[in-house]
Design a protein around this nucleic acid. Sequence first.
DNA 1: TAAGTGTATTAAGTTACTTAATACACTTAT
DNA 2: ATAAGTGTATTAAGTAACTTAATACACTTA
Lengths: 121, 121
Amino acid sequence: MITIDYTDRRPLYEQIADKLAKLMLSGVFPPNEKLPSVRSLATELSVNPNTISRAYSELEREGYIYSVVGRGSFVSGTDAIIDGEKAKLTEQIQEEIKKAVSLGILREELEKILDEEYKEG
Amino acid sequence: MITIDYTDRRPLYEQIADKLAKLMLSGVFPPNEKLPSVRSLATELSVNPNTISRAYSELEREGYIYSVVGRGSFVSGTDAIIDGEKAKLTEQIQEEIKKAVSLGILREELEKILDEEYKEG
DNA sequence: TAAGTGTATTAAGTTACTTAATACACTTAT
DNA sequence: ATAAGTGTATTAAGTAACTTAATACACTTA
């Protein structure tokens, strides 16, 4: 479900939180769905439970999930926020692509990046 | 000339290299201009000379500057600087596209932006 | 009651970054 | 020639964030 990329410079908890967020946004974990328990996900990823706990804390702080002692962690509905972020990010990307064009970066270069990032991962 | 932002999560050498790069691109340091010496900039920023040395090494690796023992460090020609800037912008775009993917933005949306910006004319 | 849940604490280990103190070979100015 | 200034390299030590490890607690569920 999640694979850890050890070439990634970011801390594990951040990387795991990001991938979980992506899974939630892609619908693998719909709103109110129960996430894997801290201990089970730690075992699955061969990582310390504290690391998962921190990843979940970050996700909770960002509004993606909510956790209840004794019950588990659950996906919260964040669709409105996400739509806003999408629009903002899209504008940002367009600005950077404008800079790329003026610097003479070829479209093929950017297509190559799209191939990488939209590969599955 | 340069101020250090201690809320920035990146390492000092990277932050300093970035700001120097921007100064070069904005023309504050024209091609072939002599940069501050490792020791003087270290003193000015209250930072260890090794940290400046590493920042300069990064800039040299990226083609922004060239260094000569006994003489100093100098801004490279415009072409080299632009190459460095291209590399940096490409990295930035890749980061944003990563975010786009995790937000569920479809590839087609980004292709549409590319169509707009790379339209001939 | 037993097992599973999130959360908290303390300790130890790891890694990258940073500082510090030197040293070297070289260039420039005196 | 001498002194000062240059980039670069090395070794050591310190710092901070991250990670692992071992427990413990309060709670919920089967």
